[in-house]
């Protein structure tokens, strides 16, 4: 089960958003295959620090695939070659001795690079602030069981709600479109009676914000769905289209 591998890492290094970046190569020796990809980067950083060089900056936090912080584009795939997993859930046993592993940041106009592999995903917060909520106050709400919701609907809403906001959909999309992210939130809330009330308003507001922030137009290539670590379906995009178009026709 356990063995060690050696490989070459090509890592994108960039000082700041305005500065020019470039790849830097690092030779990694004898890395146990049961270390995670991020632990492998920890090892690299430890080596760099010991040499007095600055460590590679990358976003990470929970390291169990739920916070959505990690965001590496590994060998041409957001979150690496595993499907249905985030970068932090990627283990070195997926790679072979002698491999060249290329690590890049998310590349999209909506997500400018802050440093090295760390990008600014503040745009997602702004889209959420535009309408990704139910406009209610704290308190004064009906009992949890007052409105029955079919299991089917609740499950569909949960499928959409499992989005972790990591940005892999934008990173994977050749159009730099954030439609999967937006549609997941719009769908979750449109499927539930609690969110239905302002569904039309929400779809319009979130989409307008997405467009304003410079994300691209969806052309249904399905790359987002294929790379999404939570396997969110593009049928959510169809639902967003439906919600949006019917809202516009009603205006």
């Amino acid at each position: 089960m356990e063995k060690n591998i050696s490989f070459t890492l090509k890592v994108w290094r960039q000082r700041g958003p305005k500065e020019k970046g470039a790849f830097k190569e690092y030779k990694m020796q004898d890395i146990p295959t049961d270390t995670s990809f991020l632990e492998m980067l920890d090892i690299l950083n430890e080596q760099l620090v010991n040499k007095g060089e600055e460590p590679v900056v990358f976003d990470h936090d929970c390291r169990e695939g739920i916070c959505g912080m990690c965001s590496l584009y590994v060998n041409g795939h957001p979150h690496g070659p595993s499907t249905g997993a985030t970068t932090c859930q990627l283990y070195m046993r997926k790679f072979k001795d002698g491999d060249v592993i290329t690590v890049e940041p998310w590349r999209s106009a909506g997500f400018p690079v802050i440093r090295d592999l760390m990008v600014d995903r503040g745009a997602y917060d702004k889209i959420m602030q535009a309408g990704g909520y139910v406009s209610i106050n704290t308190g004064g709400v009906p009992d949890g069981n007052a409105i029955p919701i079919s299991k089917e609907k609740a499950d569909l809403a949960m499928d959409a709600a499992s989005c972790i906001g990591c940005g892999a959909c934008v990173a994977a999309c050749k159009n730099g479109s954030a439609m999967l992210f937006v549609s997941a939130k719009v769908s979750q809330l449109a499927l539930l009676p609690q969110g239905q009330v302002e569904a039309a308003r929400r779809a319009k507001a979130m989409l307008a914000k997405m467009d304003e922030l410079g994300f691209g137009n969806c052309t249904n290539t399905r790359a987002c769905e294929a790379e999404c670590p939570k396997c969110i379906s593009i049928s959510n995009i169809a639902r967003l289209n439906r919600e949006f178009i019917s809202a516009k026709f009603k205006d």
Partner: peptide
């Protein structure tokens, strides 16, 4: 629980529609 349901938290449901 009431607050979260109202926010659109998709809690698990029984077939009858209750939590």
């Amino acid at each position: 629980i009431d607050q979260c349901v109202a926010q659109g938290v998709p809690f698990a449901r029984e077939y009858g529609g209750t939590l």
